[in-house]
Design a protein around this nucleic acid. Structure first.
Lengths: 194, 194
DNA sequence: ACCTGAACACCGTTCAAGT
DNA sequence: ACCTGAACACCGTTCAAGT
């Protein structure tokens, strides 16, 4: 290996990748800019060029998290096939799986100040909203979800899925039952249709 | 006013009260043991006698929060009168009101490691579980909620209410619609009954 | 344009000592 | 039993200076 060059080259990405790992393994509390800098082999002041402050790094993580969850939901919906209830269930299960794998990131995302904050964060959250929103509209179009304001129904479904995903954190009573609760939610939502 | 005595007398309570206020006004991030000690007029090491570390203080806050939410839910259910749907709605609205008044505390409570952690925390959470659990059982007894495992239905309702309460934080899209979403939840849950 | 090094004002936690 | 004061090992943030 050669000497580390003065310019890191991928510092922003390196910091984000390491931060994501620390967040997953240790939680948000343990996330320190100085520590990330140390692990990237740069001075403690270097991250400042890429993140205005600690909150900016957290917002970037949340934004990337939303984008990833949107992708995973979209993939799960596609993989679930044409049956609407299966597609709705797949969405909920994708939430739960995400929260299981990355509880601290999930918390960060849904506690983040989305409106009027970081641009990347709003964009990531927007992608998730649109992805879920399309599915909700599909259900209403085919009569498998109750009629009414689609935005409101989307909001209700996302809040519910997030609430269920919230119980998978270790130390929460009822973790492990989350997938079953998603089944119940799908039954409740689709029972009101047609 | 006399000289401050060497022994504070109510230090634990004073720290908790001040911490609750700071949590409400500034969020959990801003909560510092040294700052609380300063505001109580004691040395920075004094809180150690009452809270083993910062996390212990946060757990105590979460425990008290759960106890208070349980009280507020119980009061709201009573005030709602005999109609079951009104009682269920009152429970959800109490969640939303609590989250509106104290978003940071709500987050702290539901992110807290309930099992195997602080005793007071588990006790407070337990009170809320029991309070909501009794209402759910009532609804099943009177046929206004779907039959099935009451623990599971309680878990589902609490997760849903928590998810909806989670959107009232400023910066979340859809805050302000929370009470309406509670109405929708009540309709969904009770539609499955009898 | 990107990074360093020193400096400032904080933290949480520990522990011998005081009342 | 409860609190103090000094000490230790950290933070985030700022800024002149270096490459």
């Amino acid at each position: 290996m050669t000497e580390r060059p003065y310019h890191h080259g991928h510092l922003r990405d390196a910091l984000l990748a390491e931060a994501e790992r620390t967040l997953r393994e240790q939680g948000a509390e343990q996330l320190s800019l100085r520590d990330l800098a140390r692990q990237a082999g740069v001075s403690h002041a270097a991250p400042r060029r890429h993140f205005a402050d600690r909150q900016a790094l957290l917002d970037a993580l949340a934004g990337a998290g939303f984008a990833r969850l949107a992708d995973e939901v979209a993939a799960a919906v596609t993989a679930a096939g044409p049956d609407f209830r299966a597609r709705l269930r797949a969405t909920g299960v994708a939430y739960v799986r995400f929260a299981t794998t990355d509880p601290a990131l999930m918390e960060l995302m849904f506690a983040a100040k989305i409106a009027g904050g970081d641009e990347e964060l709003a964009a990531g959250a927007g992608r998730l909203f649109i992805t879920v929103g399309e599915l909700i509209s599909e259900g209403q179009r085919t009569g498998q979800l109750p009629a009414g304001d689609p935005e409101r129904l989307r909001l209700l479904f996302m809040a519910t899925a997030r609430g269920i995903a919230g119980i998978v954190t270790p130390g929460q009573p009822g973790a492990g039952q989350a997938d079953g609760l998603i089944d119940d939610v799908v039954a409740l939502f689709t029972a009101g249709g047609r």
